[in-house]
Design a protein around this nucleic acid. Sequence first.
RNA 1: GCGGGUGUGGCGGAAUGGUAGACGCCGGGGACUUAAAAUCCCCUGUCCUUUGGACGUGUGGGUUCGAGUCCCACCACCCGCACCA
Length: 842
Amino acid sequence: MSDTRFDPSSADGRWQKAWDEAECFRADSGSEKPKSYVLEMFPYPSGRIHIGHVRNYTMGDVLARYKKMRGHEVLHPMGWDAFGMPAENAAMEKGVHPGKWTRENIESMKAQLKRLGFALDWSRELATCEPDYYGHEQALFIDLYEAGLVYRKESEVNWDPVDMTVLANEQVIDGKGWRSGAEVEKRKLNQWFLKITDFAPELLEGLESLDKWPEKVRLMQENWIGKSRGLQFAFDISNGEKLEVYSTRPDTIYGASFVAVAADHPIAQALASEDAEAAAFIEKCKRGGTTAADLETAEKLGYRTQLTAQHPLIEDCELPLFIANFVLMDYGTGAVMGVPGHDQRDFEFAKKYHLRIQRVVGTSTADADRPLGAGAEPGEGVLVNSGPLDGMDVDTAKREVIGRAEKEGWGEGKTVWRLRDWGVSRQRYWGTPIPFVHCEKCGVVPVAKSDLPVTLPDDVDFQTPGNPLVRHPTWKHTQCPKCGGEAVRETDTLDTFVDSSWYFLRFASQPGDRPFDPEEVAKWLPVEQYIGGIEHAILHLLYARFWTRALARLGQIDFTEPFASLFTQGMVTHETYYRREPETGRVVYFAPDEIERNGQGAILKDDGFPISIGRVVKMSKSKRNVVDPDTIIAQYGADAVRWFMLSDSPPERDLPWSESGIEGCARFVQRVWRLVGEHDPQATGEDAELARKTARTVHDVGETIEALHFNKAVAKLYELVGAIEKADASADRTNAIETVFMLVAPMMPHLAEEAWAAIGNTSLVAAAAWPEVDEALLQDESVTIAVQHKGKLRDTLTAPKGASKEVLEEMALASEKVQRSLDGAEIRKVIVVPDRLVNIVT
RNA sequence: GCGGGUGUGGCGGAAUGGUAGACGCCGGGGACUUAAAAUCCCCUGUCCUUUGGACGUGUGGGUUCGAGUCCCACCACCCGCACCA
């Protein structure tokens, strides 16, 4: 048996079946063991599992299996984030119903996941597109509404004037609709919002408790929430009205040289009715989409109105009032004071419209007359050209101006948040119907909970652009739950981020009559380890945090943070292969299976001529650098694929896929398998060094898995396997081989089971206990000491562990190499770090 | 534009401020074999006047006995920016 090769094509399926039959990975909430909830971000069922999913779920799987071996009751579930635009696109392009398309995708993707041998509790599987999920979501949405956390307001969307439909940001390409090619406009619609801003302070403060989240994610969320302290004050406008503005830099108020309002500011709207040019400019501002990146990279444009604003601190100083495309109605008051010297955007605007650019902050008071060079200086410094503020530092000046405004009554200090309320309305079919009706008599009324779920109609057509729910002949017509009269259903559906804001609760318990069972939820939540892509650092994670806090405020759960520990993994990348067409200069990409690598270069199989190897980038259809998990599993087996996902690259960084890399992994799987033939229960005798190495590896692999440093765990296992191969037979070697099988069990579980059985075990290694370590074996007796001179390594010596400084210094000076380097120079100082190094300074 | 991150041999990477390049891949040489595959062994940062030495962690400065690691400035790339999920 042992001289044959390990055959994944038979072993993988056999062990997957054995785990299933033993219900090995079913989470028992009644268990007395400590509980661990390991969760990976659930996938969108796009059709095929992507190699990025494989990486994500392999990491979670290793942790889940490891935790089980360490005696934990593990909840490791899987589900489907099943609503979304691609299903509607498929309906439009292929004429297939979104539900059919989605459910078929789920079936094939589930089969793919099963082939990877993940330790998942499939009994808890859920799909957000099923009424038994989204119906409970509708109930929660009504709960939030009744708690005052849901409201409606006008808000801008991307409007395609040809298709007469709302476009997602993704569907706007270079300012044009992706299908019609028409120039996109901004249009206002009445939409549903969740009051996430009510939670801004606690979402910010809560970040401090998330000490097992990556620092960068907390920082990004902090900046996104964007708490700022500034001054809100009113300008007197030449038409007799007041204009409220907000500024985070009131210290620079003496440098103000203009005032600007958003295109949809009431003042601008009022002007439009009497000033045709102003109206034309406002119309122009409506062009283009709604994304922040577009707005901020667009050319700064303004329209100079006839109005002026009196500077609050400088007598007879009238500032011109502009309507500007870069001022947002959503932030602050929709109006700003422009200080070109110390804000880059204002600087560019001032250059363009020939406005005064005055320095009011410098490195010292001597800077007063130093002109501003190429751009604004937004940093810290000392106030100049600012009357009574001269000489103050920025922070003092801020406090001074706010204090004066409050005393004199023309403004007040105010905390403003960058975070905006969460718009959850989507004018689309394939999403959770918003459970409300519009009644002429009673207004907006929630659907009675006893009438939930409000289900999507199946008979819809996608041949016409726009929301099929609006066109449906009967679906939206209903009775008002309050007065019983005729009423119309809300046709907007919920943002899919709502679906993913509470699925982790539904995994913990799935009662039919309510969203979750609080007692079951209390047993498992918060999620001990959450793993997913860094691209979700802000939106998904912030919305899930908000939703959890909202439910806590409603008393439905008693914790406020859903994910105790978060890990964000890197992408899987692949090199690209291309040729440039000689005539057109266009780049044509080739798929990995169309080419053959030869040393440094590559050739196209079709014609045998070389092709160029491009940069290593994220796998994408357009670059054709995608590898399909099914193909590689069939070729190398699940364990080799899993091992590759864990090897080499640190998990938070990108992992470049390579043919030679996976081949190396497949070779290592066989290398571990060959240890079965070396396993000799009769072997006697000690091998103290190997025993120490084994103990050290058990300790290190456990520690690195817990820290999610899988690449280091992999390297340690390579080292131990190498050491075993070199060692002679002994009882310690036999033990080391058994230990290896247990240590690789979380990573290459199929091989581990096969080997475990082959050496005579009748139970599953997946259910085995992690090996114990004899602490005494972790202590080294001697250490290697580095000896430096002039900052360079000159020699190394072996010394007993814990040797004194004096002894180490003496040993270092006795070295011939060191003496040669010293060459008789006078020793000025010797630095000795015990167990580490000796550094001689001359 | 704004916010966040990353940068070390041919490649992926390792390294509590203390021996830079562990481990893996690629490449070269050898063993076994009729041959191949598989497997095993050795070499493998660059340069030089080669039992030795110099240089070397994106670039330029700085702190330190000592910097991949800390500080400042810059460059390149990646992620996010509220309707992709």
